[in-house]
Amino acid sequence: MCTTCGCGQGQVTVEGETGHGHAHHDHGHHHYHSHADGVSEARMVQIEQDILSKNDHLAWHNRDDLTRAGVLALNLVSSPGSGKTTLLARTAQDMGTDRSVAVIEGDQQTSLDADRIRQTGARAVQVNTGKGCHLDAAMVGRAMRTLQPAPSSLLFIENVGNLVCPAGFDLGENAKVVILSVTEGEDKPLKYPDMFHAARLMILNKSDLLPYVPFDVEKCVEYARRVNPEIEVLTLSALTGEGLQGWYDWIAARAAGMAPAEAAE
C-alpha cells in the first residue's frame, strides 16, 4: 500500500467513492540533470526537497478548497478510546442546528464511527486506512470530494486513534485538536510531545471521572505547555455535557473569521 498518497493497491477505502476516481497528481516533476553522451560516471544531484512535499502539496490544495468555501476544518487526534467519537457525535448534534456539519472518520477498519455520526443527522464518510496508522492529505482530499462539505460548514476530521504518527501529516486543516482523557495519565504530553507540539488546542475529556482517578489537571496543563507554550486547554465531559459550551465557543470563534470566497466560477 502507498500510505503516502493513499491510493494504489486498494487497502485504503473511502466510503461512497465510485471506482478509483483519483487522478494521480504529478506536480513538480523536474529533471535537474542532463545526460552527457557516453559519460556514465557517478554524479551528485542536489535536491533539497522535503520528504513530505507531496503530502504537503496535496494538503495545500485541501486547505485552499476549504478556505474558498469558508469551511472550518479541525483535525482531531488522540489515542484510541479518548472519547473522540462521543465528543464528535455530541458536537454534531448540538452545533448541527445552526451550521452544516460534516465528518471524515479515519479508522483502520469498519464504518462503525461514521454510522454513529450519521445517526446524529450529520453527513459522514468513513476512510479505512487498512494497515495505515494515520490519515494523509490524499485520503482527506478523496473524502472531501465524496463529502462535498457545504459552504460555511464545519468539517471534523477524526484521525486514526494514535498519538504518534498523525502529528507529522498536514491534512489541510485549520487546526489540530488533541484530545486526552483523564483516565490516560497526565504525563502523556511529555511521553508523546510531537502531537502536543503540533496541536492548537488540548481537550481534557471525561472530566466527570476526575473524582475517581488520580489525574492532576494542573500538572497535565503544565506538561503540555512545556512542549507547546501556546497550546489552549479546555476541560470537558462529552458524556455529561459539562464544559461543552467552551468547546462550541472555541469553534465558533475560529469559524467567525472564515467566509466563502465570492462565487467567481
Binding site: 500510505t3 516533476h29 523536474h30 520528504i51 513530505l52 507531496k54 504518527c165
Partner: peptide, 16 residues
C-alpha cells in the same frame, strides 16, 4: 509512519 516517509523519499528520488 516511517514507512510513509520512506515512500516519500523514494517519490522525491524518482521525480529527479
Amino acid at each position: 509512519h516511517e514507512m510513509s516517509l520512506a515512500e516519500g523519499v523514494l517519490q522525491v528520488v524518482e521525480d529527479h
